[in-house]
Design a protein around this nucleic acid. Structure first.
Lengths: 110, 110
DNA sequence: CCTCATACTTAGTAATGCTAGGTATAGTTG
DNA sequence: CAACTATACCTAGCATTACTAAGTATGAGG
């Protein structure tokens, strides 16, 4: 049985990771998974690979991201690059609006 | 299959509701479920009873809340009043700190 | 040749919010 | 007093996500 706070920390990230990852991809236009993992860690969002990759796959399947294996300059390990699809940009805008709303409510209660 | 945004809105609330409810109870010291439902709705957090009550039960079982059936002045329907337990206050402080951190990261990515 | 770092993948688990009901009491109306 | 409504709380089952804990595969360095 895990600590109440640890458990909450898992829950509070649901949805938040999607948001941050979409923001991060928008910021960098085109990134691959492992690099994204490091960029997120720099922002103090530390994920395991087993958390990030399924998330990227899901968002790609939902049509939010475009994914492409690197084909040119292929020296080193193959990398799968992600970028925002149209519907991903649109969703991100909606998410931002909703999240700002939630922050406002939170602030007003504190 | 639900819309991607609707689905996300469900996910992003996980943990957030706990936080808001603890904040609300702290603010009012002592409230019962149905009243809490209305107070939250006034803040634009609209829940179904089937969402709130299990949540209150869970937090009570975890020792975060103290629950007591109204015994005095018992006219009208019986009401179960909730207030913050020690560990609930403590958890709330930790949650606040973590949530502020998440907001800072979010802002920096946007 | 063996180890390590990079890079991606997958199966299974725990936890929460929602749906869609249900129970019970008190006041109101015909 | 019977029927209805509003108040107040409860519960079973579902869908979804983040995490754990593996595994696969490539290239570089000793």
């Amino acid at each position: 049985m895990s600590d109440a706070f640890d458990n909450w920390k898992t829950q509070i990230k649901k949805g938040y990771l999607d948001l941050c990852i979409l923001l991060m991809i928008r910021k960098h236009t085109r990134v691959y998974g492992f690099d994204l993992l490091e960029k997120l860690a720099q922002q103090d969002i530390v994920l395991k690979e087993g958390t990030l990759y399924p998330l990227l796959s899901r968002m790609t399947n939902e049509g939010l991201l475009k994914a492409a294996w690197e084909t040119e300059n292929l020296k080193g390990h193959p990398r799968k690059f992600y970028s925002l699809a149209k519907s991903g940009e649109q969703l991100l805008d909606e998410m931002n609006e909703e999240y700002e709303r939630m922050i406002r409510i939170y602030k007003s209660l504190n």
